[in-house]
Design a protein around this nucleic acid. Structure first.
Lengths: 204, 204
DNA sequence: AGTATTTTGTAGCGAACGATCTAAAATCAT
DNA sequence: ATGATTTTAGATCGTTCGCTACAAAATACT
């Protein structure tokens, strides 16, 4: 019972995502948010409780619509190696076409707000681990399918790929250059094709 | 002529570095800065012009004392491969012992402030490229010394190593776990030892 | 119809923000 | 000593911050 909400909750939360994404948590004001969400300040506090709580909601929304969507779409192809390659390729293309240099909300948050907010830190760490788990699953699947070398350690390489991905997203915000970004990814992708060549033979 | 400065400029700028490093540019207030620098607000504006100009100075100070110091120290050893390995190892150790999770000021700035400030963006990009250039020089030296495989492309692998480094620093702020961070670095370090095994042979 | 409940717009709260002003204190040049 | 120049402390500028109080408007339940 009571008066009905007049705004589209999905549109509103998308507006919040855009704000936090473009400006970062600290630099985004509640007035910015309300305006881009198409609601008044009172409605924002009534519906979401406050800036921080809204940010958590926005993170979840972003993870669903951006990260998980990509994971589900690429994994549906049933080609594990292609899925991993396409993931990195998509991020690079997205970064090069990202005129506003917004980067990735999860990565931005991992570096900016996560260290200063334990709860948000755990949430972000969880979302990032979903990406790592995607890499791990597809490495395992690729090995089973014989598309990837048997000496690849899925857990180790999945962490490596996540690291490479984060590196790409960081560097893309200061130097969005195709050659540079593809150079970051290249050795990691080669690893999937060729594996690491035989255990250490040389000293030092 | 005129009254002499009463504060230690080096100590003051170090205090500014600590502030920006711990809290980030946006979240650091001029009052925070003045207090940690041991000076009054008027002196801050008189000596540095303002918050943003002080930040540029702080970045330069950090690059000198942190990034360039490490590069010079490791490169002085004359062992290129060891230098690269030690660089990543130091960052990992530093990250694991970084109770406050301050991370790296350059990386934090690359993601937070660089995209919103073209001038600072160029400065940060320059500092990051110094690190990449360090990797490149040592790969080239390692190849010449026969400590690294000949099929390593120094430019490509240096970008890869920089990406891995940035990935480590991002992930360290949300999940400072030794196994995870070392897993990110491992395949990149293996690359230096074993190189990439023969040009692509398989399709897909 | 009447009451309870919720949402909304407006206005404004106290606090903190970056930056500036003023005047006293300290130094150098003459 | 005097005047020019610079630094310092303290108060304060106008703005914006996250957030809340309040009352009108809109719905559901009885």
């Amino acid at each position: 019972m009571g008066r009905l909400k007049e705004f589209d909750e999905a549109k509103a939360i998308d507006g919040a995502v855009d704000c936090f994404w473009a400006r970062g948590y600290e630099a985004t004001s509640v007035r910015d948010l309300a305006e881009h969400m198409g609601i008044g300040g009172a409605s924002l506090y009534n519906a979401y409780g406050g800036k921080r709580a809204l940010f958590v909601k926005a993170l979840e929304r972003y993870a669903d619509r951006s990260s998980r969507e990509r994971i589900a779409r690429l994994e549906a192809g049933g080609r594990p190696k292609r899925a991993i390659e396409a993931f990195l390729a998509e991020i690079i293309e997205k970064s090069l076409n990202d005129r506003a240099r917004k980067g990735c909300l999860l990565v931005n948050s991992a570096l900016d707000v996560a260290p200063h907010d334990a709860e948000i830190g755990k949430v972000v760490a969880g979302y990032l681990d979903e990406i790592r788990a995607f890499f791990q699953r597809n490495i395992e699947a690729g090995r089973r399918a014989g598309q990837m070398p048997r000496n690849l350690d899925a857990v180790t390489v999945s962490a490596h790929l996540l690291g490479v991905l984060l590196g790409i997203r960081v560097l893309a915000r200061t130097r969005p250059d195709r050659t540079l970004l593809e150079s970051i990814a290249r050795p990691a992708l080669d690893l999937l094709t060729h594996g690491k060549p035989a255990p250490s033979r040389t000293k030092e």
